[in-house]
């Protein structure tokens, strides 16, 4: 299996936060979700990977062959987008199209017009243009997406794209990812960050979990769902079950938590319900454990 990015020991020192060392791989041809709470370091990592922020140490290998994120050829292959304030607020569809065309080699104006029409944003060729500042958060995000999707890139890197979108728009975002991947079957990849994976579960292939600037777990979703199990039981079994579990939360009537698959048989013997977790349940479990361990 090829990797679109191999991250080795990337670190970044800020006054009151340190990222790293981050070691992770982003597999090629799939959608990877970078999951973590606010402040975990997701945006910093993404910014570093796309050359928006400089790193203090470590390295990343892109497409199995490129190492220098300042190389214009590499930058052209990556479609980066932040979730807020990506473009200046006084820009219009027209200025965005003009600047995107100047900023990259693979911007397709016709495709941008088509996406703007599809997302009901207007026409970049209209005489009267609307400022980005006058749009709702959701429409502004859609504009950013239209811009980045109008480039023929091989890697889409989106920082919290779902945050300002309503559930309907998130569903559409999932479709957009699948469309993006299917268009160049196997040669394109998507990386996006989120603090809430539930609306994006059925498009996520690979997950990287971050907490306090470090990667705490990663893997293909199907494998993760087999390595970790969701456990429910009655309070009566709580005491026996707790030491077998990775995360545990219980009250007077029942308990629940995540356990390693290796413990599943022992837990079943205690008359508990053991099943595969959703990615959301797994995230909560892993991130909660990381918080407790800190």
């Amino acid at each position: 299996m090829k990797n679109v990015i191999e991250i080795k020991g990337i670190t970044k020192h800020y006054k009151d936060f340190t990222l790293g060392g981050v070691d992770a791989v982003i597999p090629c041809g799939f959608t990877t979700a970078l999951i973590g709470v606010n402040g975990a370091g997701k945006t910093t990592l993404i910014d570093i990977l796309c050359g928006v922020t400089g790193k203090s140490g470590g390295e990343a290998l892109y497409f199995g062959e490129m190492r220098d994120i300042d190389d214009p050829a590499l930058r052209d292959r990556i479609g980066y987008c932040s979730s807020m304030n990506f473009f200046p607020p006084n820009w219009t569809l027209k200025t965005i199209a003009d600047s995107m065309e100047l900023g990259f080699d693979n911007f397709d104006r016709a495709r941008f017009t088509e996406l703007c029409r599809r997302f009901k944003l207007g026409d970049p060729a209209d005489k009267k243009q609307k400022n980005l500042a006058k749009l709702s958060d959701g429409n502004r995000m859609r504009t950013y997406l239209a811009a980045v999707l109008s480039r023929d890139t091989e890697l889409l890197v989106l920082d919290e794209p779902a945050s300002s979108l309503d559930p309907l728009a998130r569903d559409m975002l999932c479709d957009l990812f699948r469309e993006y991947l299917a268009e160049r079957d196997g040669e394109r990849s998507v990386l996006f960050s989120t603090h809430n994976i539930s609306d994006m579960e059925n498009v996520t292939d690979y997950a990287v979990f971050m907490s306090h600037g470090k990667v705490i777990a990663q893997g293909f979703v199907e494998d993760l769902k087999q390595s970790y199990q969701l456990v429910h039981g009655d309070a009566a079994q709580a005491a026996k079950a707790k030491p077998l579990m990775m995360t545990f939360s219980g009250n007077a009537t029942s308990f629940e938590g995540i356990a390693l698959a290796a413990q599943a048989d022992k837990l079943r013997a205690l008359d508990t319900a053991v099943e595969a977790p959703t990615l959301q349940q797994l995230s909560v479990g892993l991130l909660r454990k990381a918080e407790q361990d800190e």
Binding site: G29, C174, R178, A182, G186, N202, D205, V221, E222
Partner: peptide
């Protein structure tokens, strides 16, 4: 069908069709 085309049609993740 290709794994990504099938994933697109069924609206699920690519890793699921691949598996």
């Amino acid at each position: 069908p290709s794994i990504r085309a099938l994933a697109q049609d069924l609206r699920i993740s690519v890793i699921t069709t691949m598996k």
